[in-house]
């Protein structure tokens, strides 16, 4: 086996095992997959009602709750896992072996993306099958990549939280960050229907910018694509910088 093939094989194995490891953990896999689906069924489909702006309600909420699910998969899949594995000494053990350090992060990224894709497929599938939304290939090509791109800023945020939090406090801290941020960012209820105070906070939250970008791909959202991209880029950079500082202090 030549070197390049060996490296690819290591990265592939790390990614596959990272995925399997989390899939076999019901507390992660079930809550990551089921919460967005459950919320969508309850608040997106069961209520019914007219379109939001020009977008049919089932499609609007399928995108909003997909974005909510992607953020969860990243914060928990990346963040909580990093905190727990730091606590177990898994990082320290890897350092004593010739394990490529980057593969650890690539594998987590792969895993978060795979779970995100599963959430997106389920919710958009429900929007079509149960909500009667019409989704062409052109729509999918626009919205799915935007939703998946959300794994970048929120994996970075998860990594930062995972390097700051202790293994026991991480899941609680992440929930305290995740749920209010999803709500106030307009992932559960369209931001224009939120109380005005929360509407004023929303632009300071990365979830708001991500939701606006994703909704923009189906014709909703405010259309300030460049501003949303800049904010999410800055959040990614800040989180990665924070994570590397904390990681170097306390691996």
């Amino acid at each position: 086996m030549n070197t390049a093939a060996a490296i690819v094989r290591t990265y592939w194995l790390e990614s596959k095992l990272e995925f399997l490891k989390n899939l076999r953990l019901p507390v992660f896999s079930l809550s990551t997959l089921l919460f967005p689906v459950m919320f969508y069924l309850m608040f997106g489909l069961a209520f019914g009602g007219g379109p939001i702006g020009s977008v049919p309600r089932p499609l609007y909420f399928a995108v909003a709750y997909s974005a909510f699910g992607v953020v969860g998969a990243c914060l928990f899949g990346f963040g909580a896992n990093v905190a727990i594995e730091r606590g177990q000494g898994w990082m320290l053990l890897r350092r004593a072996f010739p394990a490529p350090p980057l593969a650890y992060f690539v594998a987590k990224m792969f895993m978060a993306t795979a779970f995100s894709l599963a959430i997106i497929v389920i919710l958009l599938g429900l929007a079509v099958l149960a909500g009667g939304a019409s989704l062409g290939l052109a729509d999918l090509v626009r919205v799915v990549p935007v939703l998946l791109a959300g794994t970048l800023p929120f994996s970075a945020m998860g990594l930062a939280l995972g390097t700051v939090c202790g293994p026991n406090s991480a899941p609680a801290v992440i929930n305290l960050v995740y749920l209010p941020m999803a709500f106030a960012g307009g992932m559960w209820i369209p931001v224009e229907f939120l109380p005005t105070t929360i509407q004023a906070i929303a632009p300071y939250l990365p979830t708001y910018h991500y939701a606006q970008l994703a909704l923009g791909a189906v014709g909703a959202g405010d259309g300030n694509v460049a501003a949303h991209l800049v904010v999410l880029g800055l959040v990614t950079a800040a989180c990665l910088a924070g994570a590397s500082v904390f990681y170097s202090r306390k691996p």
Binding site: L13, L20, N22, L25, G87, W90, L93, F97, P100
Partner: peptide, 18 residues
């Protein structure tokens, strides 16, 4: 501590790949 939800064989294969 190594991940609890991976099998013996999977752990060995991963470490062999290094």
């Amino acid at each position: 501590g190594v991940p609890a939800t991976l099998r013996v064989r999977e752990h060995v294969d991963l470490f062999r790949s290094y």
